[in-house]
Design a protein around this nucleic acid. Structure first.
Lengths: 190, 190
DNA sequence: CCGCCTTCCGAACGATCGTTAGCCTCTCGA
DNA sequence: TCGAGAGGCTAACGATCGTTCGGAAGGCGG
């Protein structure tokens, strides 16, 4: 992919995240590249192509981040690693992450279905850690692992709304992990 | 407000939630009411009015729900009540809640600022419970209450993406509460 | 019965949308 | 040196956008 084409994808990610897919016109994208809008069609076939590309890039980034989580070892550490991985993608590729979490629903046809499948697979990989933790007895054996995973995924998926690039996401992820593991109850309320 | 006008607001909430604000045309709204699009302007001055109205309705609903949470009594119970209140609004007014959480950002000018202030106020009310819980010693005294509140609010704000109307949201809220309070760690991992 | 108010129609407005077309100008490998 | 391809231009396409306008039903209080 040419350098110019890459520039276009970057601009698309930024503008889709900022103004929404339907709120971003081809003219906006052209202006971001300092070019007439017709010129964009030397690089793409349609506006929908750009959304598809950014969404796929997001899926690839989140899956790649999860790949760095070890498949063995203490579940507690894998949960921490998964949260670190997710939040670091959000912080380092905020625009792409925003499209992955929020703008994907404007995909149409089989691209949409393909994306939904990728997203479901990501969440399933996430969930599996919690299920295994319960099964192995590293988490409470009476744990409702689906709800536990949902809670962790909610924090992860909501992060794009408040995470500022440059934050110390590892520290943030560790604080979430500590809360998820040990809870917030004090002695006085036990 | 006339019955017809109320119908229009309901249709707007539904379509904005389903297709997004920019993805919904005045023609779509007119079709939902079985009317020519020009006819809508007997009820509104602009499309933006509808977004503003639905967003305000959402803010009112969430604030009203929080009003039902007692200001006294065990913090643990107040957290449970706040989560129940929030999730019940999401389940019972999913369209409005979706606009409140996701589509509000297409508000413009001072309406946007006013909405953001209301939203911040809502989250601050939510956060206050956790802070008070730490200060009173009902939650861990070493609690990072901002992170704890963020975790709970993330679950609440993300709920519109997966909560199906008719769910037992009280039970759901209780499961979240139990996890947030006691964590998911097992004896084996302690 | 009159006159107003609400609601809708049909038609049109200018603006903007995504997309296409033909042409021009570089760059660079054959 | 030449040809091809990449990348950009201007202009225009039809479609759709949000909105406006004048008029016409219908109901309802006076």
């Amino acid at each position: 992919m040419s350098a110019r084409r890459t520039e276009l994808t970057r601009a698309a990610a930024r503008l889709f995240a900022e103004k929404g897919y339907h709120g971003t016109s081809i003219g906006d994208l052209a202006e971001a590249l300092g070019v007439q809008k017709g010129s964009l069609y030397a690089h793409i076939e349609s506006k929908a192509d750009l959304l598809w590309e950014v969404a796929r890039e997001g899926a690839a980034a989140f899956h790649a981040a999860l790949d760095s989580v070890p498949e063995e070892g203490p579940v507690v550490e894998r949960i921490r690693a998964a949260l670190r991985a997710h939040l670091s993608v959000v912080a380092e590729q905020l625009d792409v992450a925003t499209v992955f979490v929020r703008e994907w629903r404007y995909l149409e046809g089989e691209r949409r279905e393909e994306f939904v499948a990728e997203r479901r697979r990501y969440e399933e990989r996430f969930r599996a850690i919690f299920r295994e933790g319960r099964e192995l007895g590293e988490l409470r054996t009476d744990l409702d692992d689906a709800t536990a995973a949902l809670l962790a995924l909610s924090a992860a998926n909501w992060a794009y709304t408040w995470l500022r690039p440059g934050s110390d996401t590892d520290h943030l992820a560790d604080r979430f992990t500590a809360l998820l593991l040990d809870g917030m109850r004090g002695y006085a309320s036990r």
